[in-house]
Simulated assay, not measured.
Amino acid sequence: MPRQTTLETQADETAAPQPDRPRRRMTLRDLFYGLGFVVLLIAALTLGRPYLTPIAVAVLIWFLINALADALSFRAPALPRAVCTAAAMGVLLVGVLAVIQIVARNVGALTEGLAGVDERLLAAANQAMAAVGLAGPIDLEAILSGYDLEGVLTRVLSAARELVGGVALVFLYVMFLLVDQRYYEAKLRALAPDPERRAWLRATLKHIADETRAYLWLMTLISLGVGVATGLTLWVFGVAGAAFWGFLAFGLNFIPTIGSILGVAIPCVYALLQFEDPSRLLVLIPVLAAIQFTAGEVVLPRVMGDRLNLSGFVILLLLVVWGAMWGPAGMFLAIPITVILMIVFSQFPRTRPIALALSRSGRLAEPLDPVEDRR
Rank of each mutant, 00 (worst) to 15 (best):
M1S: 15
T6K: 14
E8F: 12
E13H: 12
A16D: 10
P19M: 04
D20C: 00
R23A: 08
R25G: 03
M26W: 13
M26A: 12
T27G: 09
D30L: 04
L31Y: 12
F32N: 10
Y33Q: 11
F37I: 12
A44K: 05
L45T: 05
T46N: 04
G48R: 11
L52G: 02
P54D: 03
I55S: 06
I61D: 02
L64R: 14
L64C: 07
I65H: 04
S73A: 14
P80F: 00
P80E: 02
P80R: 06
P80A: 01
A86W: 08
V91W: 07
L93Y: 04
L93V: 07
A109S: 10
L110F: 03
G113M: 03
G116Y: 03
L122E: 00
A130K: 12
G133S: 04
L134H: 12
A135G: 14
A135Q: 15
G136C: 09
D139A: 11
E141C: 00
A142R: 13
E150M: 01
E150S: 08
T154D: 10
T154P: 00
V156G: 08
E162V: 10
L163W: 13
G166H: 05
L172D: 09
M175S: 10
F176Y: 12
L177C: 06
V179Y: 06
P193F: 08
P195K: 03
E196S: 08
R198L: 02
R198K: 05
L201V: 10
R202W: 00
A203P: 04
K206N: 10
H207Q: 13
A209V: 13
E211H: 06
L216N: 04
M219P: 01
T220P: 01
L221I: 11
L224A: 11
T230M: 02
L234S: 04
G238M: 06
G251Y: 01
I255N: 00
P256Q: 02
P256T: 01
T257R: 08
I261M: 14
L272P: 05
E276T: 11
L281H: 05
L282N: 08
P286F: 09
P286Q: 10
A290N: 07
I291G: 02
Q292D: 04
E297C: 13
E297A: 15
V299I: 15
L300T: 15
P301E: 10
P301K: 13
V303E: 01
V303P: 00
I315R: 07
I315S: 03
G323C: 01
M325C: 14
M325A: 14
P336T: 02
I340Q: 09
M342H: 03
F348E: 08
R350Q: 12
I354F: 12
R360G: 06
R363Q: 14
E366H: 10
D373E: 14
R375K: 13
